[in-house]
Design a binder for these strands. Structure first.
Length: 422
RNA sequence: GAGCUCGUAGCUCAGUUGGUUAGAGCGCUAGGUUGUGGCCCUAGAGGCCGUGGGUUCAAAUCCCAUCGGGCUCCCCA
């Protein structure tokens, strides 16, 4: 076998036929649960304008500063979407979706792109599903958002996780807190990491998120945002916590949880799993009350989350959870001779019209090879046709599991299979 | 962007202190059964041992580089 001449790009993977049923099963679960929550699906283009992502996600974030796939064509600046909150907000604004009335509850499933060094649970093209609720600042929206997220994992059977919760405050609270944080950090800034120093002016809260060794002593004793929340933010957060309690959703408070994107306000949350290794975030999200306006739309409160699908798959594997059922086909036509093959070709459509899945051998192989193939494809039945059957108008139907055969007309076979299989 | 580790058939892996034509199991194809799968037996296909350079009479094996996987860090889903 010669060495492949062409391969996928670094960090991009094919989902092969043995894997794709798992993806379909997961997608189906997401669609079903979203329908139960009365959420609507949105599909946006893979490419967006660079400016949207830079403004939306934040100039200083890693995502924008070093992980963007971008190129130019004519006067346009294209970027492969690294996440979907900013694009969904763009669509909301562009199509004046607030005019549809009520809050917009939009979910999505699809590929995202980030130019990172690949690792387990981290690819350059990866998949997320997520939800954005636009137009409500009621804590109910925050909690429904979290409940939907948790519901997916519950439905799949993943129980081994930790929901971390924090409030990063509204603009007023944040400014007060940022100032207090800067006052606290400033005297020691020269002892802290380069990255933290860079973040000090524009985004000091992200310093709390730092895992740099030298920053830890300062982070530990840093003031906590909870003490700087104004009454409104505090009340909102209290309600979120109360409602989560009412739903029996347990969480741990994490005052240092800040989240990667710049647009988050108030509620912030993250779902981590001990089954994932160093890339342990299953999902994350929060409120972003300022983003719609930032992108040029009407002032609109919003909350959402995004979940990594590859990571969910990894967690399933670790826990031995099978998302997909084994493949199968209802009837495999085993043919002997050209006349039989022609008969099979014209009777496959009739079988399929009757609602059954049906296939045959495309390689003119021996009966033994066809039987073997039927076995490999998990055929429930084989329909054996040769000259004898054609002459008599009766065909051999073999139950592959029971190894029992009977001789029936085609019409009788269809009738029997439909009764048995439906 | 930094560190560590691994890289032999489609898959999982053997390969002795460097020594002729590179191995196994599974999978695949065919035959044993000229009309019957799963078990068994036989045979076959499939590898320039990730790639490039170096050391050596001789390299899958040693050295360097590079690419790719894994694990950390960083960051995120």
């Amino acid at each position: 076998m010669p060495k492949p001449k062409y391969t996928t790009h670094l960090g991009m993977v094919d989902i092969l036929p043995d894997e794709s049923p798992k993806w379909r099963a997961l997608e189906q679960i997401i669609h079903e649960e979203a329908a139960r929550f009365n959420f609507e699906e949105i599909r946006t283009p893979i490419m967006e304008q660079t400016e949207l992502i830079v403004r939306g996600v934040g100039q200083l974030t890693d995502i924008v500063s070093k992980e963007i796939f971008a190129f130019e064509k004519g006067d346009s600046h294209y970027v492969l979407r690294p996440e979907l909150t900013a694009p969904v907000v763009r669509a909301f604004v562009e199509h004046h979706m607030q005019q549809r009335g009520g809050s917009q509850k939009l979910y999505y499933i699809g590929p995202m792109f980030r130019a990172e060094k690949p690792q387990k649970g981290r690819q350059r093209q990866f998949h997320q599903f997520g939800l954005e609720i636009l137009g409500s600042d009621d804590p109910i929206a925050d909690v429904e958002c979290i409940a939907f997220m948790m519901r997916i994992y519950q439905r799949i059977g993943i129980k081994n996780f930790d929901l971390k919760l924090n409030s990063v405050g509204d603009p007023e609270s944040r400014e007060a807190y940022k100032e207090a944080l800067r006052d606290y950090l400033k005297p020691n800034l020269d002892q802290m990491s380069e990255l933290s120093q860079k973040r000090f002016e524009k985004n000091p809260m992200r310093i709390l998120d730092s895992k740099e060794e030298e920053d830890q002593p300062f982070i530990e004793k840093a003031p906590v945002i909870q003490d700087y929340l104004n009454d409104e933010s505090k009340e909102h957060f209290e309600k979120v916590k109360t409602y989560l309690g009412d739903l029996g959703i347990s969480y741990t408070m994490d005052p240092h949880l800040v989240r990667g994107m710049d647009y988050y306000t108030r509620t912030a949350f993250e779902l981590t799993s001990p089954d994932l290794g160093s890339q342990d975030a299953l999902a994350g999200g929060g409120r972003y009350d300022l983003l719609v306006e930032e992108v040029g739309g009407p002032s609109t409160p919003a909350v959402g989350f995004a979940a990594g699908m590859e990571r969910l798959m990894i967690a399933c594997e670790e826990l031995g959870i099978e998302l997909a059922e084994e493949k199968k086909v209802d009837v495999y036509f085993v043919t002997l001779g050209d006349a039989a093959r022609k008969w099979a070709l014209t009777h496959l459509p009739k079988t399929r019209e009757a609602g059954l899945s049906a296939t045959m051998d495309y390689m003119s192989r021996s009966m033994k090879a066809q039987m073997k193939d039927a076995n490999r494809e998990n055929a429930l039945y084989t329909l054996i046709v040769g000259d004898n059957e054609l002459n008599e108008g009766k065909f051999t139907l073999r139950n592959m599991k029971e190894s029992e055969e009977m001789s029936l007309s085609f019409e009788e076979i269809i009738e029997k299979l439909n009764k048995k299989l439906l």
